[in-house]
Nucleic acid binder design. Sequence first.
DNA 1: TGATAATAGCGAACCTGTTCGCTGCGTCAA
DNA 2: TTGACGCAGCGAACAGGTTCGCTATTATCA
Lengths: 127, 127
Amino acid sequence: MPRSPSSQPTEVEIQILRILWELGPSPVREIHKRLEAAKGTNYSTTVKMLSVMLQKGLVKRDEDAQPHIYRPAASRARTGKKMLDDLIERVYEGSAMSLVLQALSSTRASKKELDEVRRLLDQMEGK
Amino acid sequence: MPRSPSSQPTEVEIQILRILWELGPSPVREIHKRLEAAKGTNYSTTVKMLSVMLQKGLVKRDEDAQPHIYRPAASRARTGKKMLDDLIERVYEGSAMSLVLQALSSTRASKKELDEVRRLLDQMEGK
DNA sequence: TGATAATAGCGAACCTGTTCGCTGCGTCAA
DNA sequence: TTGACGCAGCGAACAGGTTCGCTATTATCA
């Protein structure tokens, strides 16, 4: 029984997505600059990863532009949520609250942030 | 430049840890029963995975007992936190609050749970 | 125009994680 | 004893993910 390919973005894929989230739509060259600075990646590798990600639907690109412009297929928030849901499912078997408590208790948050959470709580309860 | 091995428990490793968290210390046979039921794993595979995990320090075992008894090296909470921290770091570059909001907003929580979060918030602020 | 550089693509090598076959050892019962 | 069985270990095969060398195509410009 073979294993199934991970549905999650892999390590390098996340790195590239992060760069794209930060820079916005960019040509390979820009993406590569960051990746190389971070871990000495070869240019060919960057191109290859992008082509793999394109095929997986993780990024999109404008081929009319010269050079091609890549952009993330999903927002950071959307991707993060998916990964979080997956983590919750795998480790806590679906109980998100356990994990929220974990996250909160290990964070130094500002008053502003805490208030934001409170507001959200009220909103959830009101509903 | 070769890639570095993941410091996170892998897919199958998490599956095994979950079984151990649920069952408590168990012999291979018990672990295997669950794993086989879940995905048709061969007994040899279960043994192998456990030996790999033993070497990585993810599980510990009592070799005096016959058969050997395996137990998780870290609690579910501790492991979950580590994985969460890692996720936060990789996707949100350290901003845990963003992720907490995500988790909360995608959860249907009971009043009791919400109150628990509030208590924690107060506690954090008081400190 | 010919040399040089930037852009893309492809296939193969390589690494980690996963799977399993085969072997060896101890125990128990015929 | 011997045969069947459960337990443990090991190496090799395999799959997915990552890396890069090599080649082709298209600008760039002396």
